[in-house]
Protein backbone atom coordinates (compact mmCIF):
# COMPACT_ATOMS: atom_id res chain seq x y z
CA UNK A 1 0.00 0.00 0.00
CA UNK A 2 2.80 2.37 0.82
CA UNK A 3 4.45 1.36 -2.43
CA UNK A 4 1.26 2.10 -4.33
CA UNK A 5 0.98 5.41 -2.58
CA UNK A 6 4.59 6.36 -3.29
CA UNK A 7 4.28 5.41 -6.95
CA UNK A 8 1.11 7.46 -7.40
CA UNK A 9 2.64 10.42 -5.62
CA UNK A 10 5.75 10.29 -7.79
CA UNK A 11 3.64 10.05 -10.94
CA UNK A 12 1.50 12.99 -9.82
CA UNK A 13 4.46 15.19 -9.03
CA UNK A 14 6.38 14.27 -12.17
CA UNK A 15 3.33 14.89 -14.36
CA UNK A 16 2.69 18.23 -12.68
CA UNK A 17 6.27 19.30 -13.25
CA UNK A 18 5.83 18.42 -16.89
CA UNK A 19 2.60 20.44 -17.01
CA UNK A 20 4.19 23.66 -15.89
CA UNK A 21 7.21 23.29 -18.15
CA UNK A 22 5.58 22.43 -21.47
CA UNK A 23 5.39 24.99 -24.19
CA UNK A 24 2.50 23.43 -26.02
CA UNK A 25 -0.85 23.59 -24.28
CA UNK A 26 -2.01 20.25 -25.66
CA UNK A 27 1.03 18.48 -24.23
CA UNK A 28 0.47 20.14 -20.87
CA UNK A 29 -3.13 18.97 -20.90
CA UNK A 30 -2.06 15.40 -21.53
CA UNK A 31 0.24 15.52 -18.53
CA UNK A 32 -2.38 17.21 -16.40
CA UNK A 33 -4.84 14.41 -17.09
CA UNK A 34 -2.24 11.89 -15.96
CA UNK A 35 -1.56 13.96 -12.84
CA UNK A 36 -5.26 14.10 -11.99
CA UNK A 37 -5.59 10.36 -12.41
CA UNK A 38 -2.65 9.81 -10.08
CA UNK A 39 -4.21 12.10 -7.51
CA UNK A 40 -7.43 10.14 -7.86
CA UNK A 41 -5.54 6.96 -7.04
CA UNK A 42 -4.10 8.64 -3.95
CA UNK A 43 -7.61 9.58 -2.87
CA UNK A 44 -8.76 6.04 -3.48
CA UNK A 45 -5.95 4.71 -1.33
CA UNK A 46 -6.98 7.11 1.41
CA UNK A 47 -10.41 5.54 1.53
CA UNK A 48 -12.27 8.26 -0.34
CA UNK A 49 -13.54 6.22 -3.26
CA UNK A 50 -16.50 8.45 -4.06
CA UNK A 51 -14.38 11.54 -4.33
CA UNK A 52 -11.80 9.66 -6.38
CA UNK A 53 -14.51 8.81 -8.89
CA UNK A 54 -15.66 12.43 -8.89
CA UNK A 55 -12.10 13.54 -9.53
CA UNK A 56 -11.84 11.31 -12.58
CA UNK A 57 -15.26 12.19 -13.93
CA UNK A 58 -15.35 15.93 -13.32
CA UNK A 59 -11.74 17.04 -13.28
CA UNK A 60 -10.12 14.66 -15.73
CA UNK A 61 -13.30 14.38 -17.75
CA UNK A 62 -15.34 17.55 -17.88
CA UNK A 63 -12.94 20.33 -16.97
CA UNK A 64 -10.14 19.02 -19.16
CA UNK A 65 -12.58 18.69 -22.05
CA UNK A 66 -13.40 22.38 -21.57
CA UNK A 67 -9.71 23.19 -21.86
CA UNK A 68 -9.43 21.03 -24.97
CA UNK A 69 -12.33 22.88 -26.55
CA UNK A 70 -10.77 26.24 -25.83
CA UNK A 71 -7.43 25.16 -27.25
CA UNK A 72 -9.26 23.90 -30.30
CA UNK A 73 -11.03 27.25 -30.71
CA UNK A 74 -7.84 29.21 -30.25
CA UNK A 75 -6.22 27.07 -32.86
CA UNK A 76 -3.21 24.81 -32.99
CA UNK A 77 -0.45 27.32 -32.88
CA UNK A 78 2.53 25.11 -32.91
CA UNK A 79 0.67 22.16 -34.02
CA UNK A 80 -0.27 18.82 -32.86
CA UNK A 81 0.54 15.72 -30.99
CA UNK A 82 3.35 13.75 -32.53
CA UNK A 83 4.22 10.21 -31.48
CA UNK A 84 7.12 11.53 -29.44
CA UNK A 85 4.68 13.60 -27.44
CA UNK A 86 2.83 10.57 -26.34
CA UNK A 87 5.73 8.77 -24.76
CA UNK A 88 5.84 10.67 -21.48
CA UNK A 89 2.15 10.50 -20.63
CA UNK A 90 1.98 6.91 -21.82
CA UNK A 91 4.82 5.83 -19.55
CA UNK A 92 3.29 7.60 -16.57
CA UNK A 93 -0.11 6.18 -17.41
CA UNK A 94 1.35 2.70 -17.68
CA UNK A 95 2.65 3.02 -14.15
CA UNK A 96 -0.86 3.88 -13.01
CA UNK A 97 -2.23 0.94 -15.00
CA UNK A 98 0.28 -1.37 -13.34
CA UNK A 99 -0.93 -0.16 -9.95
CA UNK A 100 -4.51 -0.80 -10.98
CA UNK A 101 -3.72 -4.32 -12.14
CA UNK A 102 -1.80 -4.98 -8.95
CA UNK A 103 -4.67 -3.81 -6.78
CA UNK A 104 -7.28 -5.79 -8.68
CA UNK A 105 -5.22 -8.95 -8.99
CA UNK A 106 -3.85 -8.68 -5.46
CA UNK A 107 -7.33 -8.71 -4.04
CA UNK A 108 -7.19 -9.10 -0.32
CA UNK A 109 -3.44 -8.72 -0.29
CA UNK A 110 -3.94 -4.98 -0.52
CA UNK A 111 -4.73 -3.63 2.93
CA UNK A 112 -7.73 -1.43 3.21
CA UNK A 113 -7.71 1.91 4.93
CA UNK A 114 -8.97 1.62 8.45
CA UNK A 115 -11.47 4.41 8.32
CA UNK A 116 -13.23 4.44 5.02
CA UNK A 117 -15.70 7.25 4.55
CA UNK A 118 -18.58 5.88 2.54
CA UNK A 119 -20.61 7.83 -0.01
CA UNK A 120 -23.60 7.44 2.28
CA UNK A 121 -21.86 9.41 5.03
CA UNK A 122 -20.88 12.06 2.53
CA UNK A 123 -24.44 12.38 1.29
CA UNK A 124 -25.86 12.58 4.79
CA UNK A 125 -23.37 15.28 5.71
CA UNK A 126 -23.99 17.12 2.46
CA UNK A 127 -27.74 17.34 2.88
CA UNK A 128 -27.65 17.65 6.65
CA UNK A 129 -25.34 20.19 8.26
CA UNK A 130 -24.08 21.49 4.93
CA UNK A 131 -27.44 22.15 3.31
CA UNK A 132 -26.99 25.91 3.27
CA UNK A 133 -23.60 25.50 1.58
CA UNK A 134 -25.20 23.31 -1.07
CA UNK A 135 -27.72 26.05 -1.78
CA UNK A 136 -24.99 28.64 -2.00
CA UNK A 137 -23.08 26.38 -4.38
CA UNK A 138 -26.16 26.22 -6.55
CA UNK A 139 -26.14 30.01 -6.70
CA UNK A 140 -22.46 29.95 -7.56
CA UNK A 141 -23.02 27.53 -10.42
CA UNK A 142 -25.90 29.65 -11.67
CA UNK A 143 -23.69 32.72 -11.57
CA UNK A 144 -21.01 30.84 -13.47
CA UNK A 145 -23.53 29.74 -16.06
CA UNK A 146 -24.90 33.23 -16.58
CA UNK A 147 -21.43 34.73 -16.67
CA UNK A 148 -20.11 32.24 -19.18
CA UNK A 149 -23.20 32.73 -21.34
CA UNK A 150 -22.86 36.50 -21.24
CA UNK A 151 -19.17 36.42 -22.11
CA UNK A 152 -19.79 33.83 -24.78
CA UNK A 153 -22.41 36.00 -26.42
CA UNK A 154 -20.01 38.91 -26.55
CA UNK A 155 -17.42 36.55 -27.93
CA UNK A 156 -19.77 35.50 -30.71
CA UNK A 157 -20.29 39.17 -31.59
CA UNK A 158 -16.56 39.79 -31.49
CA UNK A 159 -15.73 36.91 -33.73
CA UNK A 160 -18.58 37.78 -36.02
CA UNK A 161 -20.37 34.49 -35.96
CA UNK A 162 -23.62 34.74 -34.15
CA UNK A 163 -24.75 31.22 -34.59
CA UNK A 164 -23.10 29.54 -31.70
Amino acid sequence: MNLLYAASACVAIAATVMVITRRNAVHALLYLVVSLLAVAIIMFLLGAAFVAALEVIIYAGAIMVLFVFVIMLIGPRNDVVTPATWIGPVVLGLILLAELVYVIAGGSAVPRPVKEVTPRQVGVALLGPYLIAVEVTAFLLLAGLVGAFHLGRRLAVTLGRKGD
Binding site: L54, E55, I58, Y59, A62, I63, L66, F67, V70, L73, I74, T137, L140, L141, A143, G144, L145, G147, A148, L151, G152, R154, L155, T158
Partner: peptide
Protein backbone atom coordinates in the same frame (compact mmCIF):
# COMPACT_ATOMS: atom_id res chain seq x y z
CA UNK B 1 -15.01 20.86 -7.34
CA UNK B 2 -18.13 22.83 -8.17
CA UNK B 3 -16.29 26.05 -7.49
CA UNK B 4 -13.50 24.99 -9.82
CA UNK B 5 -16.02 24.11 -12.51
CA UNK B 6 -17.73 27.50 -12.30
CA UNK B 7 -14.39 29.29 -12.18
CA UNK B 8 -12.99 27.47 -15.18
CA UNK B 9 -16.13 28.12 -17.22
CA UNK B 10 -15.95 31.86 -16.64
CA UNK B 11 -12.17 31.93 -16.94
CA UNK B 12 -12.12 30.11 -20.25
CA UNK B 13 -14.86 32.37 -21.60
CA UNK B 14 -12.75 35.37 -20.62
CA UNK B 15 -9.71 33.84 -22.27
CA UNK B 16 -11.63 33.25 -25.48
CA UNK B 17 -12.89 36.83 -25.36
Amino acid sequence: LSMAAAEVAVGLALILL
